[in-house]
Nucleic acid binder design. Structure first.
Lengths: 109, 109
DNA sequence: CAGTTACGTAAGCTCTTTGTTACACATCCT
DNA sequence: AGGATGTGTAACAAAGAGCTTACGTAACTG
């Protein structure tokens, strides 16, 4: 579940989203973000070490591809919890609807 | 997706797992971990702020419950990627191994 | 072959995170 | 009332994450 730490960062999640369409070069990815290119390079390294992406050199460019396996693992990790929102969600909502505010922090309505 | 940051920590994931069975008191949770009780208290705070758990006071103890909604959100976030490992896993591996490009993303040259 | 292009790495800084010990309360039990 | 029990918060040290600038290097270009 090292992938979770990698995906905790919003920039990295966006990189993953960009890669969902197919191979993208490092520089092209970097162009999508307000941070410096080395910063993106570092994010790519984290994603690489988490197994979420792979690189392929084409000339002087590095083409990144998404490797779905860690996402699949995450999906598997999530599996045992699925029944919770299949049944319990309504129960919680009902409780809230009755005015039993369990959450102290103001929430949207 | 603040839940991802909360779930990035292994201790917190284990807490979530422990809570999958139902309500558990803070002290009982803390007993499962090698870290100090205040440390666990802090983890619980992070989980609370991420909306993953709720607390209920019963006498002097605080009973924690899992709130599945952020997990459901995570499941929803994961959804667009599911087709990747449903069909493409093997294909991607093969493609990468052969060094072919999966999909030209508006590159010039 | 020299210059440009595309990347990654190194060094350094700052803000967070995680853990610890010490402390403050509220609640339960004689 | 007074002590034990169960928890959260405060203060602080250590480690980590993320960003920036500067630099090194391989590959195209002319």
């Amino acid at each position: 579940m090292e992938a979770l730490a990698a995906l905790a960062d919003p920039t990295r999640r966006e990189i993953v989203a960009l890669l969902a369409g197919g191979e993208v070069a490092a520089g092209e990815l970097a162009a999508h973000f307000p941070v410096s290119r080395p910063a993106v390079s570092r994010h790519l390294r984290v994603l690489r070490e988490a197994g979420l992406v792979r690189v392929r050199a084409e000339g002087q460019r590095r083409l990144y591809v998404l490797d779905p396996r860690p996402l699949s693992d995450l999906d598997a990790w999530l599996a045992p919890y699925r029944w919770l929102w299949a049944q319990r969600l309504d129960a919680l909502d009902t409780e809230i609807a009755r005015g039993r505010r369990a959450r102290p922090t103001g929430e949207d309505r």
